[in-house]
Simulated assay, not measured.
Amino acid sequence: MKKRILVYGHLNDSQLAQLNQDFEVIIFPDLTSIDDTAFRASLSGAHGLVGASLVITPELLDAAPHLETIATISVGYDNYPVEELTRRGILLCNTPDVLTETTADTGFLLIMAAARRAVELAELVKRGEWTRGIEPKYFGSDVHDKTLGMIGFGRIGAAVARRGALGFGMRILYSNASPKPELEAQLGAEHREMKTLLAEADIICVTVPLTTETEHLIDEQEFAQMKPSTIFVNIARGKVVNEAALIEALKMGQIQAAGLDVFEQEPLSPESPLLHMKNVIALPHIGSATHETRTAMAQRAVDNITLALRGEHPISLVNEEAWKPA
């Protein structure tokens, strides 16, 4: 009897065909809740899950006694109870590497757009209000030759820094990561305590993963340490930043502008003050949202779960402790 996989993330026809060669595949293309009746009914015979965005709970795991592997179509895994999965011997696979460059592109897009007030001024043109040369009150800030502070210096943080250092001649500072001598040599990056980085950087970009230690890592105290001219960018997770403190810092002029791809609650509430601030660029969590990258992420998830359910080590395993070689 073939093992059963429940798919609730987008896979293309080729990827579904690959899974169907070896497994029974049940697709839930529009699944928005783990309480979906059909999904719940299928869990009892499921050996694998492929998808993203849904919060996986211990209670859901109780309904899936045969579950062996979850392949998330994401690099982040804060929606998953990793310790509980490990305790139950369930493998959790993710998709690092394949989205690094695309997410870094998004980060630098936000840096440029916020610094040069691109969205605000594009809307001015669309409203027909561009009737003469742009006045100083609409001027933005240069990006080249500025100091870029990276809070987090993993794959994505390093890729953002590489764009800044090699493409724009930026000085690179980094914190919340162990020293990276190789990147220091390549990019001239300098390791700093976060307090020092916050005070020195002209542009601050957050790329740390969300953990219990990093939740609200950037709070009222951190914004108070930044320059009034600071451009603040978050492409990590929304809960890494205290959104109320960010809003207050923008209102009070403690920082100049913000570029955000992630929020504490997603989708962002229509009532959020961020939507009405001219100095905020707000994107709908599009860090990896290109055709090429999402296809590559889905393929990594397919390859991960195929290997795992065959008893082979997956390419990208989060909880190595749960791996038990055959």
Rank of each mutant, 00 (worst) to 15 (best):
G9C: 02
Q15E: 07
A17T: 02
L19P: 00
Q21H: 14
D22Q: 14
F28A: 02
L31M: 07
F39M: 06
A41R: 14
V50Y: 03
V50G: 06
A52N: 13
S53L: 05
L54C: 06
V55P: 00
L67M: 10
G76Q: 07
Y80W: 04
L85W: 05
L92A: 06
T100L: 02
E101N: 13
T103L: 15
R116L: 08
R117L: 07
L124P: 09
V125D: 08
V125N: 06
E129R: 15
I134F: 04
E135Y: 02
G140T: 15
S141K: 12
S141Q: 15
D142Y: 14
V143F: 14
G152C: 10
G154H: 01
I156V: 13
R163K: 15
G164I: 02
M170V: 01
Y174L: 08
E182Y: 08
A185D: 04
Q186N: 09
H191D: 03
M194G: 06
A199E: 11
D202N: 15
P209T: 08
F223H: 05
F223W: 04
A236Y: 02
A244Q: 15
I247N: 04
A257F: 10
P273F: 04
L275A: 05
K278T: 11
A282T: 07
T290F: 14
T290W: 15
T293G: 13
A298P: 08
A301E: 05
H313W: 01
H313R: 15
P314K: 00
P314I: 00
